[in-house]
Simulated assay, not measured.
Amino acid sequence: MADDCCKAACGTTATLNDPRWRRALWIALGVNAGMFAVEMAAGAAADSRALQADALDFLGDATNYAISLLVAGMALAWRARAALAKGLALIGLGGWVMITAVLAALGGAAPEPELMGIIGALALAANTGVAVMLYRFRTGDANMRSVWICSRNDAIGNIAVMAAALGVFGTGTAWPDLIVAAILALLGISGGIQIVQQARRELRSVAA
């Protein structure tokens, strides 16, 4: 899914220095930081692993946006290194969520589907707005592409959380919640691998 390396590496300096790019990142940072607090509190209240997994993803994205703002305008090598760190963080976060889902499967009551659905819909609206705002920047370098991948994955994850809420409501068990948490973990790992692969290609092109 990664774009051609030359296409990603060439012609991005003007975009990185574009005030619209920086403004979009600041807005995305604020939205994700706020939704992390909301979803973490709701996940604890509803005893939902899927909501907690999505909340951690919001936290990871807020951190990613902060890093992107820090390295915007720097040389490609530094942007690629930042993207590499973000990709590895996504892989690590996905692994942690997967482990917690497996542990939760060994015991625990079903979460509250009503609260899951409400918060999932709120998160979907927030992430869809961010993804639409960042869509124009989706074909930049690894650092810019990582921002787009995070936003896209979040919107998909929110739809999955809402589906999990329906599943918990219909079955009265925690399994739909745990399955969605595992899917979100795999999505994060997959996105992290994409980012790492493109960042490594860019680092090799700089070295060459």
Rank of each mutant, 00 (worst) to 15 (best):
I99V: 08
S68C: 11
G129A: 02
R49Q: 11
A75S: 05
L106N: 09
A126D: 12
A85W: 04
R49Y: 05
G107Q: 09
W96D: 08
F58Y: 15
F58Q: 15
A105W: 03
N64W: 11
N64C: 14
A50K: 04
D57Y: 12
R49N: 11
I119F: 13
A125P: 00
R49C: 08
A109Y: 01
A109I: 01
W96T: 10
G60L: 15
A55M: 15
G73P: 07
R81F: 02
T100D: 09
A82F: 06
E114G: 06
A55Y: 15
D47L: 06
A82G: 08
W78I: 07
A83R: 05
A53K: 10
L115P: 10
I91Y: 00
W96V: 07
D57R: 10
A121I: 01
I67G: 10
L93E: 12
L56E: 14
I119M: 15
G108I: 07
M116Q: 10
T63Y: 13
L90Y: 01
A80Y: 00
A89P: 11
R49K: 06
A104D: 08
P111F: 03
A53E: 12
A110T: 00
D61C: 14
D61L: 14
A62T: 15
E114C: 04
Y65S: 13
G95Q: 06
Q52I: 14
A89M: 12
L51K: 12
G120H: 09
L90G: 07
G107K: 02
A53M: 13
A121D: 03
G73E: 08
A72G: 07
A66M: 13
A110W: 00
A105V: 04
L88I: 11
G73H: 01
S68R: 09
V102C: 03
L122N: 09
G94M: 08
F58M: 15
N127M: 06
L88S: 07
A82S: 10
V97T: 06
L70E: 08
S68M: 12
A83L: 07
A109N: 06
P111W: 01
R81G: 01
L76D: 02
G92E: 11
L90R: 02
A125S: 04
Q52V: 13
G120P: 11
A50P: 06
R79W: 03
G129F: 00
A101M: 01
R79N: 03
A85R: 05
A126E: 11
T63V: 14
G129C: 00
I67Y: 07
L69A: 10
G87N: 05
G73C: 07
N64Q: 13
G94E: 02
F58D: 15
G60Q: 15
R49F: 08
E114F: 03
L124C: 02
A75L: 03
L90M: 11
L115D: 09
T63L: 14
